[in-house]
Design a protein around this nucleic acid. Structure first.
Length: 283
DNA sequence: GCGGACCACTGTTCTATGGC
DNA sequence: GCCATAGAACAGTGGTCCGC
């Protein structure tokens, strides 16, 4: 006697029919008949009265169903324990995505799956990708596109990049307008910095100084005080500005930014991670 | 000792068919 | 229409052999 025997027995008992039980369980009718016969032989008891109209439990069958029901209930509980999202979920994100877009997403996720322990690490895209590849993080939000044979990615959102400056700064039409200006950037490995460097290189604007900062808060304070200009997404600019700042749209070749969610292809996708991906897809 | 390949045996499921 | 049975096909398991 195994779990499937009890499941078949219970289903036949419920439907009072071998054929209907077979349909529900996706077996052929003869298989269900054989299983019931074998169970009866093993228990040395007749479990069903047979008739041309169907099957009904004997007293031995009624006795067995008292054991089968709670056993199958416990089996289902055990299965559900592994299907319900729970345990740790280690995520990573760039500073700007974590600050602007993730709070509402993670709030919804926490309300839906309170048993999951979510941790969020912020770092540059380059650093986050390394940590996913080394199995240290389950999934990360980074600036795309990402084409790596060991990673799978899907687009989380598209955003517009803008330059920000103090309100008195003259309009910025090209990279050459930044000559002798100070660029406020995050450390090497930041995708926005790479995008900015590419733009300056393409337009041969070489006399531009850099100043590295580690937080968005510090970056905006410096911009507002007229210390320099910085490249951020439009949503971050609107979220973070406290005083007056000026937004300068970028040329169309550089203004688009795609945030992607990436994870290892070969990593086991836990229920906790699967539900997060589903939530993002339904957003 | 360990892991892979091969083979025989056993159990499970299916199709086809017959009886009620 | 329903259930039972026979025979065939397929999948899984255990034992043995061989190479590393």
């Amino acid at each position: 006697m195994d779990i499937r025997d009890l499941q078949i027995f219970q289903t036949v008992s419920r439907h009072k029919s071998v054929t209907k039980a077979a349909n529900e369980l996706n077996y052929v009718q003869s298989n269900v008949t054989n299983r019931i016969n074998r169970l009866e032989q093993e228990l040395n008891a007749q479990l069903f009265h047979r008739s041309g109209k169907g099957m009904s439990l004997t007293s031995a069958g009624r006795n067995l169903i008292q054991y089968a029901d709670p056993i199958l209930e416990m089996v289902n509980e055990a299965k559900n324990a592994f299907l319900i999202p729970q345990g740790p979920l280690k995520l990573g994100s760039t500073e700007s995505t974590a600050a602007v877009h993730l709070p509402s997403l993670l709030m919804k996720y926490h309300e839906a799956y309170p048993q999951v322990d979510v941790s969020l690490t912020t770092a540059s895209s380059e650093e986050l990708i390394k940590r996913v590849l080394h199995y240290e993080l389950d999934g990360v939000f980074v600036v795309g596109p990402i084409n790596h044979p060991e990673l799978k990615a899907f687009t989380f959102m598209e955003e517009e990049l803008v330059l920000i400056s103090s309100p008195h700064h003259p309009p910025i039409h090209s990279a050459r307008d930044l000559q002798h200006e100070t660029l406020l950037v995050f450390d090497v490995g930041c995708s926005y910095r790479s995008r900015l460097e590419q733009w300056l290189s393409d337009e041969k604007a070489h006399s531009v100084k850099r100043m590295e900062l580690s937080t968005l808060e510090g970056l905006f304070r410096c911009v507002e005080s007229g210390f320099g200009v910085a490249l951020v997404t439009r949503s971050v600019a609107q979220e973070y500005k406290r005083g007056e700042i000026k937004l300068h749209p970028l040329s169309t070749d550089y203004h688009q930014s795609t945030t992607v969610f990436i994870q290892r292809k070969d990593r086991y996708q836990s229920p906790a991670l699967s539900r997060l991906v589903e939530l993002m897809e339904n957003e």
